[in-house]
Structure formats: structure tokens, C-alpha cells
């Protein structure tokens, strides 16, 4: 049957409309199910003073300090700046963690990223090695502390966000799924 004839036939138009309606309903049900069954993590938010149990170890925040990048190396001349000189203006947040063994089979997790605004930052592994010799030589014990320096780049932010960088909320992330534990850094020392 030619398309023109189908279009003029009420019967066929009703059939086609019903098929279209059924397709729409099926599509809506499918989209609804996909969203209903999405595997999203359960968020657990902790304050800076709380301990977070993660992979059999209790992590706590001993201190968090924010300063300009150059200032950090002035204060700590023993460390080597591995970054490229023209990386642009930036700040650092120096976070000192304590780690206490809870489960004997646990492994220390040192990959703890930081999240702020819509930015997710890892850290410089070479500087991490330099700052934590006990982790490198194997003398690290339960209850010891280790330090991670997070870099915040102006280039990743808008002018407005950079101006407000000291008042931004920072979160340290432990794991992604099924439970995502986050420590909110609410008490950062500013230098």
C-alpha cells in the first residue's frame, strides 16, 4: 500500500498511532528502569576530627595547611620541586594523616585524592616519596603519620573561583563504590 493511501486510511493511521504510542511507553519504561537501577555509591561524609575506617585501617587528619606553592619550597628547602616552572600560579594543601591498623590483613592506602569545586586532584608521587621516607624504607608502623601535598592550579579554575579558593570546601575521598567515604576539611590552617 502506498504511503499516501496509508495516510488517508483511518484504520492504518490508528494502527500506526498505537504502535508509536506503545514504542513511546516502552521507551519511557526502559529509561525509568535504567535510572532506577543505576549503581550509584552510598556517600558517607565525615568531619575533619573523625576517623575513617577504610580497607582495615583507621585514617585521621592530624593537620591541614594551605599555602602558596613557592612558599612551601621556601619553608621546606630539603624537598625537590619536580614540576615544570611555567605551570602557572598555584597553591598547596599539606595534609598530615595518621594511620592505625584495625585489621591485620589490611594494606595502607596512600592514594587518597582530593575533591573541590568540580575538580578532582591526585598528587605528585615523587614529592610524596620524598616527604614520607618511612613508607619507602618500610619502617612505617601503625599509629605513624604520613603527609600528602595536594596542588591547586589556577589554570583549572575560573577567576572568581580562584579568588575564593581559600574559602572553598575540600573533601578527601576514600574509595568510589559501593561506599564513598569523604572527609570534609573544615579546619585548614592558612599561611
Amino acid at each position: 500500500m502506498k504511503f499516501k493511501k496509508i495516510r488517508e486510511s483511518k484504520f492504518w493511521m490508528i494502527i500506526l498511532s498505537l504502535i508509536a504510542l506503545a514504542a513511546i511507553v516502552l521507551y519511557v519504561i526502559r529509561v525509568y528502569n535504567v535510572n532506577k537501577n543505576a549503581l550509584l555509591p552510598e556517600y558517607q561524609v565525615y568531619s575533619q576530627t573523625e576517623q575513617v575506617e577504610y580497607k582495615g585501617i583507621n585514617y585521621g587528619i592530624q593537620s591541614a595547611t594551605m599555602m602558596n606553592y613557592n612558599e612551601f619550597f621556601k619553608k621546606n628547602p630539603q624537598y625537590v620541586d619536580y614540576s615544570i616552572p611555567d605551570d602557572g600560579e598555584r597553591k598547596v594543601i599539606v595534609v598530615e594523616y595518621s594511620a592505625e591498623l584495625v585489621d591485620d590483613g589490611a594494606r595502607l592506602e596512600t592514594y587518597i585524592p582530593i575533591k573541590y569545586l568540580y575538580v578532582f586532584n591526585s598528587f605528585d608521587p615523587m614529592l610524596f616519596d620524598d616527604m614520607n621516607p618511612s613508607l619507602a624504607n618500610g619502617s612505617f608502623k601503625s599509629g605513624d603519620t604520613f603527609t600528602i601535598v595536594y596542588e591547586i592550579y589556577k589554570n583549572n579554575l575560573s577567576e572568581k573561583e580562584w579568588k575564593n579558593i581559600e574559602n572553598t570546601e575540600y573533601r578527601l575521598i576514600f574509595g568510589a563504590y559501593p561506599v564513598r567515604k569523604e572527609i570534609v576539611l573544615s579546619d585548614i590552617n592558612r599561611m
Binding site: 577504610y54 590483613g105 594494606r107 574509595g175 568510589a176 563504590y177
Partner: peptide, 9 residues
């Protein structure tokens, strides 16, 4: 331990 930690939807 924590094997799912780097998985995301």
C-alpha cells in the same frame, strides 16, 4: 579488600 574502589557507573 576494596577491590571495587575504583569502579564507577
Amino acid at each position: 579488600y576494596g577491590v571495587l574502589d575504583d569502579w564507577f557507573e
